[in-house]
């Protein structure tokens, strides 16, 4: 353990003097500004509705249709057909509704810009039918949610929803990039050869790198998370996920790095690895797209566990799912130690 501590202290000094700590702090602050000031809180785009009432008595229909939105600046009343078209021409994101018939037998004409998809057109049609009572939505069917998605998921502001992704790409996968830099620096200095003729073990040598990169991940998490979401997250759980995730990604990167001598040689596998491990981000933003080949990636579990820790109750993937990631990390580390042991003796 003394040698592991000495190796860790050495890696901390080298990391500090290579500006890794400064880099992590700088990136965390930059991401805070990005999330807070550049990404909007809400991306919902609702179209303006231009209404032309050609009914003789249409006040109840109007009330049914628009209810509390009557005073909204999104609802515009046209005087005649010409006015409706001119108003719609001025507003690219608008739809027109022409009310016809009578209170008892209302009819509608929908006016579109032309760029709306068939799905949107059908959705609007059904929405109007439902609001006017022509389509009974309360009977004949029920709704069951297989995943207990809490309202909290819907209440997460769009910009803050990026936080788990940033934590995974930086705090967890940071090790993947920095470990390549660390290993290639040492390969050019040939210091591993000097280490190899001491009683120091390979696991102590590599373990120190895993520890230091986990510390950097924790530092990033502890800077960015409170700045973005305050004290809401379950921090103990969050840090545990970051540590386990970082250990796994660092160990996998160590295996790859052992086969190359410099950064240019390893560029393709390094980018390939980060691309594959980053794929679960697609499922994060499009939850409906979660095929098996994304779900089996360790970063899938890590990403959703991070979301659960940052926004408690937003997902069912919890800390209990991490035992498998920890096991994968342990196996990857054992493989890295074995590969390094062989390669050091080959050189």
């Amino acid at each position: 353990m003394m040698r592991l501590a000495a190796n860790t202290l050495k890696e901390l000094k080298l990391g500090w003097r290579s500006y890794y700590f400064l880099l992590v702090v700088g990136v965390a602050i930059a991401y805070f500004f990005l999330v807070t000031f550049l990404i909007p809180e809400d991306l919902t785009v609702s179209p303006d509705v231009v209404v032309l009432n050609e009914m003789e008595e249409g006040s109840q229909v109007m009330e049914n249709l628009f209810g509390g939105d009557m005073e909204s600046d999104k609802l515009l009343l046209a005087k005649d057909r010409d006015d409706l078209e001119k108003t719609m021409n001025r507003r690219f994101n608008s739809v027109g509704i022409v009310l016809k018939g009578s209170e008892r037998e209302p009819a509608f004409e929908l006016v579109f810009q032309g760029h709306e998809s068939q799905d949107i057109r059908e959705l609007l049609r059904l929405s109007i039918l439902q609001r006017t009572g022509a389509l009974n939505s309360e009977e004949g069917y029920g709704i069951e949610y297989l995943e207990d998605r809490k309202p909290v998921d819907e209440a997460i502001p769009f910009n803050k929803s990026f936080l788990p992704v940033l934590l995974m790409s930086e705090a967890v996968m940071l090790g993947m990039f920095l470990v390549f830099a660390m290993i290639f620096g040492e390969k050019s200095e040939e210091t591993i050869k000097a280490y190899s003729i001491t009683p120091g073990r390979i696991w102590e040598y590599l373990g120190a790198k895993v520890i230091v990169l986990a510390i950097l991940g924790v530092l990033f998490t502890l800077i960015l998370t409170p700045m973005v979401v305050g004290i809401g997250p379950r921090y103990g759980e969050l840090l545990l996920i970051v540590i386990i995730g970082s250990a796994l990604s660092t160990s996998i990167a160590l295996i790859f790095a052992s086969f190359y001598d410099n950064l240019s040689q390893s560029l393709v596998p390094m980018l390939g690895l980060s691309l594959v491990f980053g794929l679960p981000m697609i499922s994060f933003f499009i939850p409906g797209f979660s095929p098996w080949y994304l779900r089996i990636l360790p970063t899938y579990t890590i990403l959703f566990a991070l979301k659960g820790a940052v926004f408690p109750g937003s997902t069912q993937v919890g800390i209990s799912s991490l035992w498998l990631i920890a096991l994968e990390g342990a196996i990857a580390f054992a493989v890295a130690v074995m590969v390094y042991g062989q390669r050091v003796r080959k050189n």
């Binding site: 050495k10 000094k13 080298l14 290579s18 200095e189 040939e190 210091t191 000097a194």
Partner: peptide, 11 residues
Amino acid sequence: SFEQPNLYRKL
């Protein structure tokens, strides 16, 4: 004692 100066240059 190696011929190459295999040292940690940042230490």
